[in-house]
Nucleic acid binder design. Sequence first.
DNA 1: TACGCTAGGCAAATCGTTTTCCACCGTCAA
DNA 2: TTGACGGTGGAAAACGATTTGCCTAGCGTA
Lengths: 332, 332
Amino acid sequence: MSEVTIVDVARHAGVSITTVSHALSGNRRVAEETRARIQHSIRELGYRPNAFARSLRTERSHMVALIIPDITNPYYPTLARGLQDALHAGGYQSFVCNTDGLREEERSFLKDSLQRRVDGIAFAAFATTARMLAPVIQEHIPLISIGTAIRHRKVDCVRTDDVAGARDATRYLIERGYDPIGMIGGPAGMSPSDHRLEGHRAALAEAGLAFDAQRFAVGDFTRAGGAAAMRELLERRARPRALFCANDLMAIGAMDALREAELGVPRDVAVMGYDDIEAAALVTPDLTTVVNPAYEMGRACGRLLLERMSGADDGPRREVVIPHRLIPRASA
Amino acid sequence: MSEVTIVDVARHAGVSITTVSHALSGNRRVAEETRARIQHSIRELGYRPNAFARSLRTERSHMVALIIPDITNPYYPTLARGLQDALHAGGYQSFVCNTDGLREEERSFLKDSLQRRVDGIAFAAFATTARMLAPVIQEHIPLISIGTAIRHRKVDCVRTDDVAGARDATRYLIERGYDPIGMIGGPAGMSPSDHRLEGHRAALAEAGLAFDAQRFAVGDFTRAGGAAAMRELLERRARPRALFCANDLMAIGAMDALREAELGVPRDVAVMGYDDIEAAALVTPDLTTVVNPAYEMGRACGRLLLERMSGADDGPRREVVIPHRLIPRASA
DNA sequence: TACGCTAGGCAAATCGTTTTCCACCGTCAA
DNA sequence: TTGACGGTGGAAAACGATTTGCCTAGCGTA
């Protein structure tokens, strides 16, 4: 109990509650002399406005929910930091909800966020459909979809362009003269898998090169999966001169398999990854890769949310595409 | 605006506000038939209790603050997840404050937490002294220090034992018969540096081995620093048979330098790290290391907070020491 | 019959703000 | 002289829950 309320401050300063409130909010002019007296009383008494009462009256919590699969997945802390840095400037805090990609958890956290009366939501959805968002939409709570899982005309979206990223990665290999070029992709049907494959094929087509299914293998986004896929490619005796992997972990796995086969990277086979996880810079040789700028994603979410929450912006749906970045290192 | 309030529910169900409230909180018996009618009305109207009003009355926010240097530092997401999982069970959420270890930020987030009326705080302090905590203590808000930076008789503490961890690491090298054993430490004066060195020396002493300053070098906890320290050791021609590094990054750097010198790990020099960062399992050879179980740390914080916040526990200061774990891999 | 007890329900006070409507007081222009 | 008008400031009504007394009906018991 802070015990000391605005009433105490008013009494101590010899003014009305109204005046104290206005001195704090700046909503109305208060004589300089009065304001000084109030400030003095506030310090004297150690007054701290009660956030509950304030929120009850204003209907704003200055809180947003960040709903993600798992803060432990190395992509999200950076995104969270970007979001928090952006929001902090506006006096907002955010709490993190870990859904593990489970539909029930997503639903439950969405509900909790509503109950807590958050002013906005940033949501990296996996299993949530636009229909499940009805209550959020109805309350006009700004919601931003991180990535493209949710498509709804009232829901803003911040995303990267995986197709373009994969195209750039493949182009990079082409331009450096590697030939032929293979790929280890992710499981079909997952949108990053599909987009990255699509970009890869587009770059080949642009350069007038054929996509050869013999030089394409599928992994499961893990290191072991990447190694297995690489071994499969080697057995097929259609060894590529350069290899684009749909993520860094598989690229690291591929390098394991190449080392087993006593092939040098990039001497015999150049390897390219995707994501730029921390380990990408730590393995040997360090991994050329494409980075999804998580921090910028988070920042963009934060800024967009701030605009929406300020109420000023009631415009049409917005879609922000954050540019990716290719990071040349030793492996390709 | 959810618009629908407890008044609407009461009217719709044909009972008084009081009864609805009690049906929800379970604070008083309500006839089964009445309760059913109320539940039905709630669903019908889509009623969601207003958290502000509730908190205003009950003085509980069901929110805790997690104040850490940087969620981007790979240690903290795991800790955050542990905390959140524990708190979730009690209906609590947590918001993250990134202080970057700056005194002013720490102060400011502490103040913000107070203003938001959090029910508890988990604080990994760097620059905050016990004195700065006066307002928190005064309001009887449960506070848990993560690590030992804050010492105060009202502040609980959850920590690991770096001395014991380093001792176990060194013992492990001794038991496997490596000799002589060297170490790359961190900058003197930082508590992890000092503790890990202390543990290292203790293990040597126990085994009747001498600590040889010739085989000790200092790095700065970075990869490059580890490599430089290793080169220094090699130049001194006092090459150790095994090396304990005060963190994984320096261990990885040391392996870089060994590779340069065309020395095999662990064939010529065995290497041991500390922390078990993600990359530790991804480098080649993968790194034997000691893990500070961040998840368990977070969980312990969460559980301790829950107990304190329940009000049941008003006992004396508590200190929880989370056991570390040695992870044998290929490098030693 | 009188009394106490229990279950269930109601009205109203309360939590600490923000905000709306009004009042007062000089000053200045008509 | 009067009315309008800034510049200040105050009283009181929300905001939406929880909780405290108080009441009633029904029932068992002395």
